[in-house]
Design a protein around this nucleic acid. Sequence first.
DNA 1: CTTCTAACCTATTCACGCA
DNA 2: TGCGTGAATAGGTTAGAAG
Length: 205
Amino acid sequence: MDWHESTTPFVPRPDSSLSFFYNYNNNNNPIYPGVEVKEGALLVERGGMEKMNNREKKKRLTSNQLELLERSFQEEIKLDPERKMKLSRELGLQPRQIAVWFQNRRSRWKTKQLEHLYDVLKQQFDVISKEKQTLQEEVMKLKRMLRTQTVGGYTEMSGEETVESTSEGNKLRGRTSNITEALCSFTVEDYNTLSLPPCQWPYYP
DNA sequence: CTTCTAACCTATTCACGCA
DNA sequence: TGCGTGAATAGGTTAGAAG
């Protein structure tokens, strides 16, 4: 899940309705006085686009700025105050802009991770699904064989006792239902510990 | 215990840039 | 000019410090 092993594992926050999404634990939330400028660098307020006339036009970051930000992000997904100020100085951007960029970047990163996870799970599901189909076909085949044998004078299986209700059938059922349960009960907490193939960053949608 | 602050998050808005 | 992208905003939660 982490870009680097150094980053904090995905730990849902307790007691939060949004805990599902809280990747990054907040236990060592640093004090960072006077840096987080709530307006200042930002150009537009909600519903106040007319105010932009007096402000700087919203600009895209330059390729150099993006390159450095991206490098920094890949070193560490979280932004500590010191690094924020350093990047701010180096890139000539407001600290708030750096913070926003990291925020948005983490968001994009997580979206990609979820897409990747979906692909992995789908692949696994397809394989298992195929396997189940093969086994079901085999069961049908065995049933047919049994029926032929009983017609020919062999011992007949009583009433409901089919191949599926035998120990083999139970094994098969148990196995498939376990797989289904496992897939249906998959949570993001599992996602934390799931070992995924290495994720090639940066990749964009 | 309550309040404040600063960090984080998701969802959303909307300007920019490209086909 | 329509659409995708991404910078920025809004509004929410949590943790930690201070009163």
